[in-house]
């Protein structure tokens, strides 16, 4: 019994001794943290998604105080940018909202299937195993890795087996972009309403065989809208959506270029 009491007393004494030292040292060595960091951290959404280019919200808050732009947070959008700008005493520059776009429309009917994949039901596994069941190496696999990666429920695999983004929910954090093993998903400004929904770099012949709505790199669209569309690596890309004429969209033999409906 005596040793128990002695043990408690001893540990208590040692503990007290060190806590006194540490609390004194804390007062002496306290680091002055800019109070604005705390304020900004309160305003930020706290999703820690990393879309701003910093590892987390706390790092971004630190960076803002040191002079980083206030409008990097795509989760919070304009609202948060303005709030941060008020704290920092600067004006928030207008920020173009970006959303993810799945650059494939090769669904069950349109794409050519050469096999049936029955392994682990994830895009990453299917991509590794044999490239899934589709002939096209640039086609959406449809196992929903992106759907599971999205913290906001903005992307889902539709009933036709191709991932689809709800642009009203998507905040453009880019997690699905990183997750997609095929690199089909890209971040695009939300007001870019004309897009080529195919990223296949196969030659026209191969691409046409693999999917009815593939971009075959024929360049007809680019001829009609030379300033707006360029063809690189057998694939067309919209550079300036505002200058794309309806004619060039109609000219596309496969219908890979799509004008999205106006936003509500």
């Amino acid at each position: 019994m005596g040793s128990v009491v002695a043990a408690i007393m001893t540990m208590g004494a040692i503990g007290l001794f060190f806590s006194v030292i540490i609390s004194v040292a804390y007062q002496k060595l306290k680091v002055e943290v800019d109070p604005r960091v705390e304020e900004i951290l309160d305003v930020l959404p706290g999703a820690n998604c990393g879309a701003c280019g910093y590892p987390g919200c706390a790092n971004y808050a630190d960076a803002i105080v040191k002079g980083a732009p206030v409008n990097r947070c795509s989760v919070g959008g304009m609202e948060v940018a303005e709030a941060i700008a008020r704290i920092m005493g600067v004006s928030a520059e207008s920020m173009v909202r970006k959303v993810a776009r799945v650059r494939c429309r090769g669904d069950r009917e349109r794409a050519v299937w050469i096999s049936e994949y029955v392994g682990i039901q994830s895009c990453a596994a299917a991509h590794l195993a044999a490239g899934g069941g589709k002939l096209c190496n640039y086609g959406c696999l449809g196992f929903g890795d992106c759907e599971r990666a999205c913290p906001f429920g903005a992307i889902r695999v539709n009933e036709r087996g191709v991932a689809e983004v709800d642009e009203n929910v998507c905040i453009g954090c880019g997690l699905c972009v990183q997750t997609c093993p095929r690199g089909i998903i890209t971040l695009e400004p939300v007001d870019k309403r004309v897009l080529v929904f195919c990223v296949s770099q196969d030659s026209g012949k191969v691409a046409k065989k693999a999917c009815k709505v593939a971009c075959i790199g024929c360049g007809l669209c680019a001829k009609k809208s030379p300033d707006a569309i360029v063809v690189e690596n057998n694939c067309a890309r919209v550079v300036d959506a505002d200058k794309v004429t309806d004619e060039s969209i109609e000219k596309c033999p496969t219908g890979a270029i799509v004008r999205l409906g106006s936003r509500n």
Binding site: A7, T10, M11, I14, F18, I22, A25
Partner: peptide, 20 residues
């Protein structure tokens, strides 16, 4: 005080405080 059995506990306390 014949409390050698406390060595690990007290040493960890020392280390944790020093790291702080």
């Amino acid at each position: 005080y014949g409390l050698e059995f406390l060595e690990i506990v007290s040493f960890i306390l020392v280390i944790a405080s020093l790291v702080q």
